[in-house]
């Protein structure tokens, strides 16, 4: 990192992270509005028409980036689901004070007789 190697690019151009995936963007099948709607349904999100369109655009832009990792050689590498390797820990079976029920239920939109009231799940 000497001054001689300081052939920098200005911030807005984001040369090596941003540009490369967009060059390969065409190789990649963009997702349709129907697919966005399907994902929203899986995610339990009610979205407006304009939100669906916005997310279609955002998802497609990000998916362009996701192609970055499709070319990486990952032969023989185990996935890393945790930051630090862990092994299972057994907890002692000790009784601790539970949460205060009134404090818990105060946060619920509806409660009755010390219980949460959920939306009707089974129609009569």
């Amino acid at each position: 990192m000497t001054a001689a190697t300081a052939e920098y690019f200005v911030f807005r151009e984001w040369p090596y992270i941003v540009r490369s995936p967009f060059l390969r963007y065409n190789l990649f099948m963009p997702i349709t509005l129907d697919e966005v709607q399907h994902v929203a349904k899986l995610a339990r999100l009610e979205l407006t028409e304009s939100e669906l369109l916005a997310f279609q655009q955002e998802l497609n832009a990000l998916l362009g980036h996701f192609q970055d990792i499709s070319d990486v050689d990952l032969e023989g590498i185990d996935p890393k689901p945790h930051a630090v390797s862990l092994r299972n820990v057994w907890a002692d079976d000790v009784i601790e004070l539970p949460l205060d029920r009134d404090m818990v239920l105060k946060n619920a939109p509806k409660s009755r007789a010390g219980l949460f009231v959920v939306p009707t799940i089974i129609e009569e």
Binding site: I69, S70, V72, L74, I77, D78, P79, K80, P81
Partner: peptide
């Protein structure tokens, strides 16, 4: 899964 492998690497 791929992202987790890149993470490992």
């Amino acid at each position: 899964l791929k992202a987790q492998k890149v993470r490992a690497k």
